[in-house]
């Protein structure tokens, strides 16, 4: 589904990604973790070409995201993305947030879009909030709306960029519950997160990044059991302490 081959990226002379190679198969849940500044958020933004990269290739469903002949908007419409800072559209109601792209990108009818939106809001437990504006919701609620917004496009896979890091601790679980349910339904997911509990529960594979490199790319059993690299061991010992 997602193939990342030998991707390198520089900000000026500073190299943020070095020869990253990995893949996410259909139905797989892959968690990307690593210390901050390790390039994991950059990598996931490269996947749907929100960040350009200088070397290598990324293919989604066989289509290269850096090929100028690829219809990027069309491709991105099929890849759901949930951002660290919510990024709901503040001037639109919750329902309008969910219907905007359905109407403008997928050319769905308004009523059909609203119906779909309501179904998804009900799923994430926020049906009553439909007429409200994002600024009137809590962080956890906004994040669930963001997930529903991505789902409204019937994506073939979902990218999560630190979905819980901007949340208060008590709101993290309500978001993780939605994500776990998604994973258990067989959604293909690539997820940058520090939530090791989530990784343990639903991940098929764990990718560990440090200083722009993929240091480990292994099954979750191996990763939590006996990480091969010293850096991953150190990271795990730090993060699992609390």
């Amino acid at each position: 589904m997602i193939e990342i081959k030998d991707v390198s990226k520089w900000y000026g002379t500073f190299q943020v990604l070095t020869n990253c190679t990995t893949s996410v198969k259909k139905g797989e849940v892959v968690v990307v973790c690593g210390p901050s500044g390790s390039g994991k958020s950059t990598l996931i933004k490269c996947v749907n070409a929100l960040e350009p990269f200088e070397k290598g290739e990324i293919r989604i469903d066989g289509l290269s995201v850096s090929d100028p002949s690829t219809d990027l908007p069309k491709l991105r419409a099929r890849v759901g993305m949930v951002f660290q800072n919510f990024e709901l559209f503040p001037h639109l109601t919750i329902m309008e947030n969910l219907t905007l792209a359905q109407i403008r990108v997928m050319n769905r009818g308004k009523e059909e879009s609203i119906e779909k939106g309501l179904k998804l809001l009900e799923r994430v437990g926020l049906k009553a909030q439909a007429p409200k504006f994002p600024g009137q919701l809590s962080g956890g609620q906004q994040k669930r709306v963001a997930i529903a917004r991505a789902m409204a496009m019937d994506p073939m896979c979902m990218l999560f960029d630190e979905p819980t890091s901007a949340l208060d601790p008590e709101m993290i679980n309500e978001v993780l519950d939605v994500m776990v349910a998604l994973a258990q339904e067989g959604m293909t997911m690539m997820c940058v997160t520090h939530e090791m509990g989530f990784a343990r529960k639903v991940a098929n594979r764990v990718i560990f990044m440090d200083r722009g490199e993929i240091v480990e790319d292994t099954t979750k059993e191996d990763f939590f059991g006996k990480p091969r690299s010293e850096r991953a061991q150190l990271f795990l010992s730090k993060i699992l302490q609390h």
């Binding site: 929100l50 991105r76 419409a77 800072n85 559209f89 905007l100 991505a150 496009m153």
Partner: peptide, 29 residues
């Protein structure tokens, strides 16, 4: 925020659509 533009693009909106429906309505306000 840059994320607003990214969020519009990630949903499959084209850049002009992202301006029209996401960025300009807030910018003008």
């Amino acid at each position: 925020s840059r994320g607003q533009r990214n969020a519009g693009l990630a949903l499959g909106l084209t850049l002009p659509q992202t301006y029209r429906f996401v960025l300009l309505p807030m910018a003008f306000r």
